[in-house]
C-alpha cells in the first residue's frame, strides 16, 4: 500500500494502482485514472458503467462481473469492450475507484 496524489488529492493505492478506499473516489480522480489507462475522455457511456459499478458495489460489496454489468446494468458486453479496451472489467473497476475484481468471470 502507498499514498499517491491523484487529481490533487492524497489517496491510498494498492500495488497495482487501485484505490484502497472507494470513498476517496471523486469524479476528478476517475478522469485522472482513466487518462492513466489510456482513456483520454470519459464519455456519458463510460460514466454509465462507472456509476452502475459504484452503485452495485455499494449495495453488494463486490465488484460486478461482466455478466452482471450486462444483465442488471444493461451494459452490453460488446459495448463494454469498446469503452474499456484491453481488459474492460479491471479497467472500469479501477477508474470507478473499486478494487481489482476477484472472480474468474
Amino acid at each position: 500500500m502507498q499514498t499517491k496524489e491523484i487529481a490533487g488529492k492524497q489517496v491510498q493505492v494498492d500495488e497495482d494502482g487501485f484505490l484502497v478506499n472507494p470513498n476517496d473516489w471523486t469524479r476528478e480522480i476517475a478522469q485522472a485514472l482513466a487518462a492513466e489507462q489510456g482513456i483520454d475522455v470519459l464519455t456519458e457511456a463510460h460514466w454509465r458503467v462507472i456509476e452502475f459499478m459504484r452503485a452495485d458495489f455499494a449495495e453488494k460489496g463486490a465488484v460486478p462481473t461482466i455478466r452482471r454489468l450486462s444483465k442488471v446494468g444493461g451494459i452490453e458486453t460488446k459495448e463494454l469492450y469498446e469503452l474499456f479496451p484491453n481488459g474492460p472489467a479491471k479497467k472500469a473497476a479501477r477508474i470507478a475507484g473499486l478494487g481489482k475484481p476477484q472472480g474468474c468471470v
Binding site: 462481473t65 461482466i66 455478466r67 452482471r68 450486462s70 452490453e76 458486453t77 460488446k78 469492450y81 472472480g103 474468474c104 468471470v105
Partner: peptide
C-alpha cells in the same frame, strides 16, 4: 455468476 454454456459463448463472442 458463471453463465450457462450458450450464454457464455455469446459473451465470449461479444
Amino acid at each position: 455468476d458463471i453463465p450457462p454454456a450458450g450464454e457464455f459463448l455469446e459473451m465470449i463472442k461479444d
